[in-house]
Amino acid sequence: MEWRARELFEWLARGELTIDVSRRYRLSEARQAHEDLAARRTSGKLLLIP
Results as ranks from 00 to 15, higher is better:
3 W>L: 12
35 E>S: 04
23 R>Q: 11
22 S>T: 10
16 E>Q: 13
25 Y>M: 05
38 A>F: 00
9 F>D: 10
20 D>Y: 04
50 P>E: 00
32 Q>W: 03
33 A>R: 10
18 T>G: 13
45 K>A: 06
19 I>G: 06
48 L>R: 03
47 L>A: 05
18 T>L: 13
15 G>R: 00
1 M>V: 10
43 S>V: 14
36 D>A: 14
12 L>H: 10
11 W>N: 10
9 F>A: 10
13 A>S: 08
26 R>C: 01
48 L>Y: 05
27 L>T: 01
3 W>H: 09
17 L>P: 07
10 E>G: 02
26 R>S: 13
1 M>A: 12
30 A>K: 02
48 L>G: 05
20 D>R: 05
28 S>L: 08
32 Q>F: 04
26 R>Q: 15
24 R>C: 05
43 S>N: 10
20 D>P: 01
1 M>L: 12
34 H>P: 03
18 T>I: 02
2 E>R: 09
43 S>Q: 12
13 A>W: 04
20 D>M: 06
50 P>D: 00
46 L>V: 10
3 W>C: 05
4 R>T: 15
43 S>R: 15
1 M>I: 08
40 R>G: 09
31 R>P: 05
22 S>H: 00
27 L>S: 00
21 V>P: 00
2 E>A: 14
11 W>K: 14
11 W>H: 12
36 D>L: 09
23 R>F: 04
33 A>E: 02
40 R>L: 14
50 P>Q: 03
10 E>Q: 12
45 K>H: 04
29 E>W: 06
29 E>R: 07
31 R>Y: 15
50 P>R: 01
10 E>C: 07
33 A>Y: 10
19 I>V: 15
26 R>D: 14
14 R>M: 00
45 K>E: 04
9 F>H: 12
35 E>C: 01
26 R>W: 05
39 A>P: 01
46 L>K: 02
35 E>D: 06
16 E>V: 04
15 G>A: 03
8 L>Q: 07
27 L>P: 02
10 E>W: 09
6 R>M: 11
8 L>M: 11
23 R>D: 11
24 R>E: 13
48 L>N: 03
26 R>E: 14
36 D>Y: 07
16 E>S: 07
23 R>W: 02
18 T>R: 12
33 A>K: 04
49 I>Y: 03
17 L>T: 06
25 Y>R: 00
1 M>C: 11
43 S>C: 05
37 L>D: 04
42 T>Q: 11
21 V>T: 06
35 E>F: 02
10 E>R: 15
29 E>D: 15
19 I>H: 06
43 S>L: 08
22 S>P: 01
23 R>C: 07
33 A>H: 03
12 L>F: 11
20 D>A: 12
5 A>T: 14
12 L>R: 07
19 I>P: 07
28 S>N: 08
23 R>L: 03
32 Q>E: 15
2 E>S: 14
40 R>S: 14
40 R>P: 02
42 T>N: 11
3 W>S: 14
25 Y>I: 14
15 G>W: 01
45 K>P: 03
44 G>R: 00
14 R>I: 00
40 R>Y: 12
13 A>M: 05
